[in-house]
Design a protein around this nucleic acid. Structure first.
Lengths: 168, 168
DNA sequence: GTTGGAAAGTCAACAAAGCTGACATATCAT
DNA sequence: ATGATATGTCAGCTTTGTTGACTTTCCAAC
């Protein structure tokens, strides 16, 4: 695996050199830290962590989602999710309603308190994202999203797009 | 915090709506999973994890770096890093040399075996990044990187840029 | 109607990787 | 000599992931 920018017809492929790729990799690493930093700060001290944030986010995004569906979005085991969900339900942030069609299923909703926390967390995260988007400009945002989308596993890309369309 | 795309003079700010920001947030979440998936697969089964990968990556990137410097890049405690570093040194992937100027410092290097693993891991990660870059195109790559850079904490941005310049 | 399998929940045990606090050692700098 | 710095180590804890085994509930098909 050497450098990919051979002296072929293409300075057009300069963006695919190993050095460019490595910079992309490191940018992902450092940026993800910033991405999670603000919600993490809010959650520390409360009995919650990043896993709770993720659950709250996606329940808010798709109210009434089933446990199984949430499981497939989050990509963790049901035991792991259940531990998180149980504390959120006990604390009155999430409500779990037995399905009407299929009573085995549980449909998840945020309570008022849940929505309150969700909005604190996502305000913080959006504020940083907004600043980054504004600094970088609309063109860059398009590029940002299309690289990220191309980086996802096909499975996740499908779920990402389904979520996008659900809010149109 | 409401939607930011008021009917002011600006369709120019359409990319800053809450919906756009939320899509950016979810894109980060799903893409990061893809980003780490391939190295994770290689490491599972070996006695190593993501933390070992990160240490190996940055030692390779800046050979001879001190423990303290690595600490500040990774943003973890010395106890946490030490656990990782100890196994890597024991297993002969990393070499720790006493500093010549300041004998308190340890300078870290990859051994041949270390470089071998590093290259397996980063080949996998680069392959995915390369595919994503190629799919999205050079314009998108510029945007991708500039949004990520804007998303970093200032501290991390400094470190990211220092690494970039060190390989010019 | 009984039964097989799916959805959900639970218990137990464990692992990776972060954390704090306390302390030891070697070395540098004053 | 003294204090600060760099590193390493021990012990214990937390969060969040894992597997495996098991139960309860319920739909659907036979």
């Amino acid at each position: 695996m050497g450098d990919r920018s051979g002296p072929i017809g293409g300075e057009s492929l300069l963006f695919l050199t190993d050095e460019q790729l490595r910079q992309g990799i490191e940018a992902m690493f450092f940026a993800y830290r910033g991405f999670t930093a603000d919600p993490d700060r809010i959650l520390e001290g409360m009995a919650y962590g990043r896993a709770h944030h993720r659950a709250i986010h996606f329940i808010n995004r798709a109210p009434g989602t089933t446990v199984n569906n949430l499981l497939s979005i989050l990509g963790v085991t049901k035991q792991s999710l259940n531990r998180v969900l149980r504390t959120l339900i006990e604390d009155g942030l999430v409500e779990s309603r037995v399905g009407r069609m299929d009573k085995r299923e549980r449909h998840l909703f945020l309570t008022d308190a849940g929505r309150e926390l969700e909005s604190r967390l996502s305000d913080a995260q959006r504020t940083r994202m907004r600043a980054a988007f504004r600094d970088a400009g609309p063109e860059a945002v398009i590029g940002f999203r299309s690289v990220l989308e191309a980086m996802m596993d096909p499975d996740m890309r499908r779920k990402y797009r389904a979520l996008k369309e659900s809010s149109s």
